[in-house]
């Protein structure tokens, strides 16, 4: 009886440890699911521009916004907004300056208002696709290149593309 109990306890403890590992395994699993389903790919280039047809029948206004969080960088778009036809290629430049006396690595995270716009923007190039390391007081101009899909709902004549730069944790030395 005592031995049976102990064997069962060991089995259950192993099960608990496996489930602890399972919690961590959910992370790559989730990332794979998102990749396969094409969800949540904010930080990757979109695969080819699906629609090169330019829809000249309407104009969409895209507003640009730039923020930093707990990071002493100067970060601003060189134009506040653009008016484009859906399907038209747009390039916007952002000016980024590290005002600190040390090198800093930052990551920009995009966000869209209204949220529905995210699915209708095809990004070809963006500084947000990778972490950006800036030397002390370095200043750079970095581009974002994208098109707006012509299937963007007509009730969205204006949307805002906003970026926030965060300092990448663990890189400050």
């Amino acid at each position: 009886m005592k031995r049976e109990n102990r064997t069962l306890r060991v089995k259950l403890l192993i099960a608990a440890c496996v489930m602890f590992g399972f919690g961590f395994a959910l992370i790559p699993f989730y990332k794979t699911i998102c990749e396969v389903a094409g969800l949540n790919n904010l930080l990757r280039a979109d695969k080819g521009v699906s629609n090169s047809q330019i829809d000249t029948s309407r104009m969409v206004m895209v507003q640009f916004d730039a923020n930093t969080r707990n990071l002493a960088w100067r970060f601003k778009p060189l134009q506040a907004s653009v008016n484009v036809h859906p399907g038209q290629m747009v390039r916007v430049d952002y000016e980024v300056e590290n005002t600190l006396d040390r090198a800093v690595t930052g990551q920009a995270i995009p966000s869209y208002t209204p949220m529905v716009a995210e699915r209708h923007v095809q990004k070809l190039e963006c500084f947000c696709f990778r972490q950006q390391t800036f030397a002390a007081h370095e200043k750079r101009v970095m581009p974002v290149v994208f098109t707006v899909d012509s299937d963007l709902p007509t009730e969205v004549p204006v949307f805002t593309l906003s970026y926030t730069f965060f300092e990448v944790a663990g890189t400050q030395k």
């Binding site: 259950l12 099960a15 440890c17 489930m19 602890f20 399972f22 919690g23 961590f24």
Partner: peptide, 14 residues
């Protein structure tokens, strides 16, 4: 409990 408490432990560890 044996199946999910470790998952919570993992989440808060992360």
């Amino acid at each position: 409990l044996i199946a999910v408490m470790p998952v919570l432990a993992g989440a808060v560890t992360m």
